[in-house]
Structure formats: structure tokens, C-alpha cells
Design a binder for these strands. Structure first.
Length: 952
DNA sequence: ACTCTGCGTAGAGGA
């Protein structure tokens, strides 16, 4: 069954100034058609219609297509849109007068009249919605060009007809009123969970493409057959749902509302240009100009036909700097000025700083302390400037670059959620598993020896028992399997082998996760496995008999140790290799095959995909037509894409046998549903003892949005879990901490080498005694207690940091480096961004990675330093939701391989029960060191401090 | 009581 696309995507989108969501995220029959009162809106009667003539550049230099796909955002109306084409036309009105006007031109691919005359074409009137759209565009354009634009054009491609539209004031009023009604409905729905009544028109609703969604929502919100006005049609659309289903849908819909509301509080500056507080916008470059060092304003990228502009900070003239209180004549290019939140690949909106005009959208291709390069699909153009001064105007303009936050994730969530309640077979199976929590089924005990996947699993030598069991769990699952991958237990390589095993069964696999990096990690491993020189690939095409298969499996095991052997089976018919020569010719063939590796397709934007797998993106491949792409999609067995990227048109109608979702513990339920709809069974991999999904709204979090699908299913059906418990990361002492605090001794070291691994110094140089103790490799875990120092947290309105802890961390890091530990092996983590920035300045060595704990999940280093930050004279009023979350503590404690150095105030931290336990555990090993004023050079430290606190 | 990743904009049909 074809997958219906997103709910009502109209190109001009309502953006309510009060923060209502865009039009497409909600659907109800009343909101479907643009004008509520059709009578109000009519195209000009034919007789009075003025004649339009679009003039191309060669006809007259000043009459032309000015722009295509022009971005037009009008905060004044709370509307935004993209105009197909902006054209300059000559309008001949009755009395030989000809005016030149700028008007929007909208293309319609449909037939205006196609032989069979519809009522509309008979009347020579364009479709009402189309006219309404053009009228809205004239409003947007009037704002953009700062002049009144009162006409527009519609062009129907199939019938090659053009319609002129003259805006009537009454039409505009009607549309604006309709817009306000809509905004009101949306706002009401998201705040009070009340939807507008249904249209109650069988004729209109019967063929509406939103009928499914509409009826389900109506029923969920207490509606009935009667109130729907659709009679049996209504019942036939909702009869499959139970009360439990309604409760589930209503609850999640409300959670999404809560979260959306919270997120919208920090909405884009662009929609409130008059609210000029600079600190309310989270990520932007506020005053930049085009880099004038090159003569040309942009560089043309031939590969993807885009235009790259480079922006630099605006130099402030001296008198300006005085006025704003600055000391230098230009913006300091310090860390403070550099926005860490914007990164390469991010979508941005560029607008004029003073005119508040949004000009274009593009993405960042390169960013450094001094400049930012942005790639646009076309040349930058200020709507107000004329062609002669265009380039000059661009250079003179002061720009603002904002991150483009389109909140599509909420509409994706809603879309996914409602998909779960449709009547289709796929939906109903998933609903049983996820809503009704039916027990997942597994192929019981009997293992089919002729299953090539199983032979493969037995043949792989470097899997431990847990890992093999996990893969078997996956292979025997009929509905789903859960893999609990505790820190460092090799879940990625387990997944890689699981993928290979399933490929041998001929299964198609969808690999997914929330983040691009998680997916690329997996793919890089998948790639490395195959191209490794230690493997020989045997492609047994056309194997007829399972017995032969067994024979080959045995042969594989009996080959010399140096070759780990893999069987690669495609299909099950015809001959088998018999002679020695045949055998060798196969080997040659397979060596060639080996170099190609496992074939997979990575779907996603190239800018954000890891360079090592970029070659597997559709665009990077040798495709020249839609047919090529189709062919590729049919061939390929493994497709990798993010949870949100799943709605890519490339995957429309695609189905997979299995969906594997990595880092599933960090994905909210409605987002996770998306990819699952594409497969007949799924595997969730994660660790719900680590950080849960990020949910902004406290209310939503407390009401269950923070619980991932992985967590939900794990709690309902522990028998579906296969746990990986042998870890290959932490040494014994480090592991014992999280075993005691979190995992209840379920974690164990994979080998004695791992358990006894110690940090190796290149010979300890003389340093002060406390540092010597801290570095002592014999103590894998140490706690530096700051209670003897006045090392208190500094608290701004929004951030917390601790300068003395930052100083201590920097000192220890320096000492580690002095003793031969390379920067790459050291990681510094802390709960707070502000502290991470402070440490970054204090340490100032780029090879040492410094991040928040949250960002560090999934990573590890030889040596990790943790700065806990919280410390106050009166610990009682020192509450922290960040440190209070045991998931986060767990992540912090499980990142280090050989040495874990904790820095904090025992007294303050002991107020948190789990951290109290942590302190006690370290104390048992007598590894707590209280540093005093004598230990750290206080004078020097004061100087440092000043520099630190100066930064922010 | 401060943790932050993803995602592109479609458009026709019908009474």
C-alpha cells in the first residue's frame, strides 16, 4: 500500500506570531480548505480582466523574471512562503496605459482545462485555492519589496494557460480573517486539546485524503458517528480501535503539545524583529558583512551548482565601539564571540541586520573563529536594490545569520503516532507490540542447522558468549528483540555481525538511529570488517543443498588459522564447486568482490554524513536518472538513515525485513515509530541505564515522554532482552564503580588484560606530592576533594561554573601531558556547558577533548577527568537536576579506560544519595585526596582565576 | 534551574 505523504503540506505556511505551529502539523477537516467562505473569493470576471504580459530580458532590459523560488517571510502577517517566480510585467489596462509591475507567478502542474471541461474551466475561473495562494503571495511580496503589489499570475503547465489575478480588498480581508481563525484553532488545539468540529459533509469528506487521520482524531477526542456527520463511513474508519488505543494516542498527542510549546518559547528572532534583546536568540552571528578580501562576492561550486559566500565580523568604527562600551576597534575574535552552537552543515537564515528582511536560506560549509561560509542555492539578492548597484549593496549591508529552526520534528512525531492507529496490517501489528504490549514471539529452541546465518555466527571466532547469544536472539525474533548494550561491551561489532548474518538469509535491513554520528559509526565498522585483509570471502552462488552448505561451513573451519573465513551465500539453487581449479577461480572472483565490501546505501545530506561513508550517498554515486536510483534502491539490501530522515522520498514504498535501531535508549517513542513502520520486525539496541531522550518540557518529561520505546518494551518484556555484559573498555576499578552504583554487579571485564590495564607514563617526572598521588597508575580511580579550598561554584542567572575546579583540572592535565600522555588520550567532561568553556580556555590544548557529559555518551578515552562543579558553603540550597540524574552520573563514570580522575566537593556532592555512594566507594580504596591551599599555588592561581572569570 | 540532535520546504483532486 502506498505510503501517504505528510499531512497537508502547503507551500505558504501559517506562522502565528503568538507561537502557534505551522499549518501542516495539524489536520482537521475544517482547516483543510483555505477560504472558509468561498463566495468571498472570486477571480476577476473575464470581461474586466486586465491583460498581462511577462516580458523576458531579451525583450526589454528592465522587464524580466527577477527571481525564482524567492523566500518571502512576513512577520506582520505571520505568514511565510516561497514564490515560484517573481516577475516584472507590463499591464495594459483599458485606456492605452501600460504599467510596469512586480508580481508573483505561481506554477501549477495540473490541467486548468483538459478537454473534459470541469465547472471551473467552463467558467474560466481558476481554482479557488490557487487564487488564494497568489493573493497571499502578493501580501508577502508587498512586505518584501516595500511597495504595494496588487496583482499576480497563475500559470497552468499542462494547458499552457495564464491567469491574471487582481487582488480585491475584500479577498484579502477574508483570507486574513481565515488565517486568524486557523491560528486560533491551532492554538486552542495545542493548549486545550480541543479540535474544531468536523465539517459533517459526507460529500466533501468522502474523498478527502485526510479522512483517516481526521476520523481517528475525532474519535480520540470524544467524537461519535453522530457528531462526525459521516454515518457508517465514520465507524468503518475507527471500529478497529479500542479505548486503550484512544488513551495512548491522546496522551502522546498531549505530550508532544507540551514539548512543542516549551520549544517554541525560544523561537526564532525573525518572527519578532521588534524584540531586540540580543540574548534571547540562542544561536546566531549578529553582525557580519561579506568578506571584501576577494573581489568577487561569492564562489561558485560547480559540483552542486551552489553559491558560497564568506562572511566576517563587522569592524566597528572607533566611535561606535566607544558607544557600545568596547575597548578595541573591532570585535575581539575570542572564544566568546565565536558561537559554538553553529557548526558546519547547519541550516541558516540570512537577514539584514537593520531592515529585518529575511533574504535567503542556506547551510554552513565552513566555520572558524574569524569567518563563516554559507552555501546558497542561488545568488544573494537584496529585493530593494536595482541591478546596477546590486553587488555594491551586498557589500555594504550588515547581515545577521540565524540558525534555521524549523520545527518539523513535532509534525513528524504526530504523523508517526497517527500512523500507528491506521487500519493497515503493518500498523496493526506494530500497535499490538507497542500500545498493547503483547509479548514478542521467538522461534523456540530448535535451531536450523541449514540456516546460513547460524553457520556464520558459529564460524566467527571473535565473538563472546553474550554477543553470540544476542545475535541468536535477533535471528530468532519474530516480532522484535532488545539488545542491552552496557558501556564498552562491543555492541557495534555485535551489530555488524548481526547484519552480516541476516544478509546471508537474504534479508533486507534498515539501519537507523537518531544521530548521524551513531549511524556512521556503525557503517564505518561495517565497511572496515569487509575490506579487512584477514578475511576471505566465499561467494557461493547457487547452492542447491543444505548438506553441501554444511560441508562448506566445515571446510571453512578447517582452513589455516590465519584466514578467518566467511561464507557468503546468495540464492539456493544449482551447482557447487567440485574441483580444485573451480575452487581457486572462485577465490579470485571473490577477492574482487571483497574489495567492494557490503553494499549499503546511506541516505542523508552529504554535508553531515561522515566522509568515510559519503561515497555511499545517492548523490555521490553514479546515477544519472530516476531509473538509476530506482534500480539502486531495488538492488541494495542495507539502507542507513536517521530516524527523521526516514521520510525521504527515496524510501517511499520501500519495505525491509528488519529495522535495527542503535542508541534506541535516547530516542523518544514517537520519533522511533517512524523507521519501524518500514520493517516487519525490529531490533532496538541501547542502554536505558545511560541518558534517556532529551525532553525540554519538565511536565512532558515527568508524564512519560522521557521514556524511550526501548525502555517501555524492556520493562514490559524482560525476556525479550539480550544483555551484553562483558565489557572491553574499563579496567577493574573503574568498572566496579558503575557496577556498585548502577548495574548491580552485572558488568564484567572481557579479559584479564582489560581488567588490569593501567595508564603508562614515560617515566614520572618530579612534581608536587599531591599530583604524584593523583597520577599514580596504581590508582585507576582518584577523587580530588576541594572541601579544604574556597572552591565555590559561580552562578550566573543561567549557568554554573567553578573556576578553581577548572584550574585544578588544567593543572592535572598539564601534568599528565608532562609525563608522556598524549592529548588524544585525555578527555575532560563536566555537566555544564559553561564549565566546559572555562576549562577549554584554562587547558588550551586542542588535542584534549573537552565536552559536556551528555555530548560524550558513546565515547571513551584512556584517561578521563570529571569536573562536578557544584560546591557551595551551604550545600543544602545546592540542588542540581543535572547531577541528580543517575543516568548522567553513569555516563560520566563509564567513559574512562584506564584512569578516572574526579574533581569536586565531597561535602556538597554527598547531598545527592548516589554521589554519596560514589564518594564512599572511592574512599574504600583510600583514593580521595583533599587538596588544600598549600597544595595549589594560590597566588598564581589567583592570577589564573582572574583570567578565567574574565572570560565570562 | 540549563542537558541539545535532527529535519527541507510537493501538489492534485473534486462538487
Amino acid at each position: 500500500m502506498p505510503r501517504t505523504k505528510k499531512i497537508n503540506r502547503s507551500r505558504s505556511v501559517l506562522t502565528d506570531p503568538e507561537g502557534a505551529e505551522s499549518l501542516d502539523s495539524r489536520c482537521h477537516s475544517k482547516t483543510r480548505d483555505s477560504p472558509r467562505n468561498p463566495k468571498k473569493l472570486q477571480a476577476e470576471p473575464k470581461s474586466k480582466k486586465p491583460r498581462f504580459a511577462v516580458l523576458t530580458a531579451h525583450q526589454h532590459p528592465n522587464r524580466e523574471v527577477i527571481d525564482i523560488e524567492e523566500m518571502a517571510w512576513a512577520p506582520k502577517y505571520g505568514l511565510k512562503g516561497m514564490i515560484d517566480a517573481s516577475v516584472r510585467v507590463k499591464v495594459e489596462s483599458g485606456r492605452n496605459k501600460a504599467d510596469e509591475k512586480i508580481v508573483p507567478l505561481e506554477f501549477k502542474t495540473g490541467k486548468f482545462s483538459n478537454g473534459q471541461a470541469s465547472i471551473w474551466s467552463l467558467l474560466k475561473i481558476a481554482s479557488m485555492e490557487h487564487v488564494a495562494q497568489v493573493i497571499l503571495y502578493t501580501l508577502l511580496m508587498s512586505e518584501r519589496y516595500l511597495k504595494h503589489i496588487d496583482s499576480g499570475l497563475l500559470y497552468y503547465l499542462q494547458s499552457d494557460q495564464t491567469r491574471g489575478i487582481t487582488v480585491q480588498r475584500s479577498d484579502v480581508v477574508g483570507l486574513i480573517m481565515r488565517r486568524n481563525d486557523l491560528a486560533n484553532d491551532i492554538l486552542k488545539a495545542s493548549r486545550t486539546q480541543q479540535l474544531p468540529p468536523m465539517l459533517q459533509s459526507l460529500n466533501m469528506c468522502r474523498s478527502c485524503r485526510h479522512l483517516d487521520v481526521c476520523t481517528i482524531y475525532h474519535k480520540v477526542h470524544g467524537g461519535s458517528k453522530e457528531s462526525s456527520g459521516l454515518g457508517d463511513l465514520f465507524d468503518s474508519h475507527v471500529h478497529h480501535l479500542t479505548t486503550a488505543h484512544y488513551v495512548f494516542l491522546r496522551r502522546w498527542d498531549q505530550l508532544i503539545d507540551l514539548e512543542a510549546k516549551e520549544t517554541q518559547l525560544v523561537k526564532n528572532r525573525i518572527w519578532r524583529p521588534h524584540n531586540l534583546k540580543s540574548d534571547d536568540s540562542t544561536s546566531c552571528f549578529s553582525s557580519v558583512v561579506l568578506d571584501t578580501s576577494d573581489r568577487v562576492p561569492y564562489q561558485k561550486s560547480l559540483k552542486d551548482n551552489r553559491f558560497i559566500y564568506r562572511f566576517v565580523h563587522k569592524k566597528i568604527p572607533l566611535h561606535d565601539a566607544h558607544a557600545s562600551g568596547g575597548e578595541s576597534s573591532s570585535f575581539p575574535s575570542s572564544a566568546e564571540d565565536f558561537d559554538y552552537t553553529l557548526k558546519s552543515g547547519d541550516y541558516v537564515i540570512i537577514s539584514t541586520k537593520f531592515g529585518h528582511q529575511t533574504v535567503a536560506s542556506g547551510f554552513i560549509t565552513d566555520i572558524s573563529q574569524s569567518y563563516v561560509s554559507v552555501s546558497f542555492p542561488k545568488r544573494l539578492r537584496l529585493p530593494s536594490s536595482n541591478s546596477s548597484s546590486e553587488a555594491h549593496d551586498l557589500f555594504r549591508e550588515v547581515w545577521q545569520i540565524d540558525k534555521d529552526e524549523f520545527m518539523t520534528s513535532f509534525s513528524v512525531m504526530r504523523f508517526n503516532l497517527v500512523q500507528l492507529f491506521l487500519q493497515s496490517e503493518q500498523s496493526s501489528h506494530l500497535r499490538k507490540m507497542i500500545v498493547d504490549l503483547e509479548a514478542p514471539r521467538f522461534d523456540s529452541g530448535c535451531i536450523f542447522s541449514q540456516d546460513p546465518a547460524l553457520s556464520y555466527i558459529w564460524s566467527v571466532k571473535n565473538l563472546n558468549g553474550d554477543q553470540r547469544r544476542a545475535i541468536l536472539k535477533i535471528l530468532t525474533a519474530k516480532d522484535y528483540a532488545l539488545i542491552l548494550g552496557m558501556p564498552g561491551t562491543g555492541k557495534t561489532s555485535t551489530l555488524v555481525h548481526a547484519v552480516k548474518a541476516m544478509l546471508m538469509r537474504g534479508a533486507s535491513i534498515l539501519l537507523t538511529s537518531y544521530t548521524n554520528s551513531a549511524i556512521d559509526n556503525l557503517l564505518i565498522k561495517l565497511k572496515a570488517q569487509v575490506t579487512s585483509y584477514h578475511f576471505y570471502y566465499f561467494l557461493i552462488e547457487n547452492v542447491s543443498c543444505p548438506l553441501y552448505l554444511m560441508y562448506f561451513a566445515n571446510l571453512a573451519v578447517s582452513l589455516p588459522r590465519t584466514f578467518s573465513l566467511e561464507l557468503w551465500i546468495i540464492g539456493y539453487n544449482c551447482s557447487i564447486f567440485v574441483s580444485q581449479s573451480h575452487y581457486y577461480s572462485c577465490c579470485t572472483l571473490l577477492k574482487k568482490k571483497r574489495l567492494q565490501g557490503i553494499d549499503f546505501l546511506r541516505i542523508g545530506r552529504q554535508e553531515v554524513v561522515h566522509e568515510e561513508v559519503r561515497a555511499n550517498c545517492v548523490l555521490a554515486m553514479d546515477v544519472h536518472s530516476v531509473e538509476d536510483i530506482k534500480l539502486r534502491l531495488e538492488q541494495v539490501k542495507v539502507v542507513a538513515v536517521t530516524c527523521l530522515g526516514i521520510s525521504s522520498p527515496l524510501l517511499a514504498n520501500k519495505k525491509f525485513d528488519v529495522c535495527i535501531m542503535d542508541e534506541a535508549g535516547q530516542i523518544t517513542l514517537p520519533i522511533a515509530l517512524g523507521p519501524l513502520m518500514f520493517a516487519s520486525k525490529f531490533v532496538l539496541v541501547g542502554d536505558h541505564y545511560q541518558l534517556p531522550p532529551l525532553v525540554q518540557s519538565i511536565e512532558a518529561r515527568e508524564n512519560g515522554m522521557g521514556m524511550s520505546l526501548f525502555c517501555r518494551l524492556s520493562e514490559a518484556h524482560p525476556q525479550a532482552i539480550s544483555a551484553l555484559q562483558s565489557q572491553y573498555r574499563m579496567c577493574q576499578d573503574i568498572m566496579e564503580l558503575s557496577n556498585a552504583l548502577i548495574y548491580g554487579d552485572r558488568l564484567r571485564c572481557g579479559s584479564s588484560e582489560i581488567a588490569n590495564a593501567r595508564l603508562e607514563f614515560s617515566g614520572l617526572q618530579s612534581c608536587s606530592s599531591w599530583l604524584k598521588e593523583v597520577l599514580n597508575p596504581g590508582r585507576p580511580v582518584v577523587f580530588i576533594n576541594t572541601d579544604m579550598l574556597p572552591a565555590y561554584e559561580a552562578k550566573d542567572s543561567k549557568t554554573v561554573n567553578n573556576p578553581i575546579e577548572a584550574y585544578i583540572v588544567a593543572e592535572v592535565t598539564k601534568e599528565l601531558l608532562n609525563n608522556g600522555i598524549v592529548g588524544d588520550d585525555i578527555g575532560i567532561i563536566t555537566p555544564y556547558n559553561s564549565q566546559a568553556n572555562l576549562i577549554r580556555t584554562a587547558v588550551n590544548i586542542t588535542s584534549v577533548e573537552i565536552h559536556t557529559i551528555d555530548k560524550y555518551q558513546g565515547r571513551d578515552k584512556e584517561c578521563i577527568l570529571v569536573s562536578f562543579v557544584r560546591s557551595s558553603e551551604n550545600p543544602r540550597n545546592c540542588t542540581s537536576s543535572l547531577l541528580g540524574d543517575w543516568h548522567r552520573i553513569n555516563v560520566a563514570l563509564t567513559r574512562a579506560k584506564k584512569k578516572l580522575i574526579l574533581v569536586g566537593s565531597c561535602k556538597t556532592l554527598s547531598k545527592v544519595p548516589l554521589l554519596k555512594l560514589l564518594v564512599e566507594k572511592v574512599e574504600e580504596k583510600s583514593s580521595i585526596f583533599s587538596v588544600s591551599k598549600i597544595d595549589i599555588n594560590y597566588k598564581e592561581h589567583k592570577g589564573e582565576l582572574k583570567r578565567c572569570s574574565h572570560i565570562r
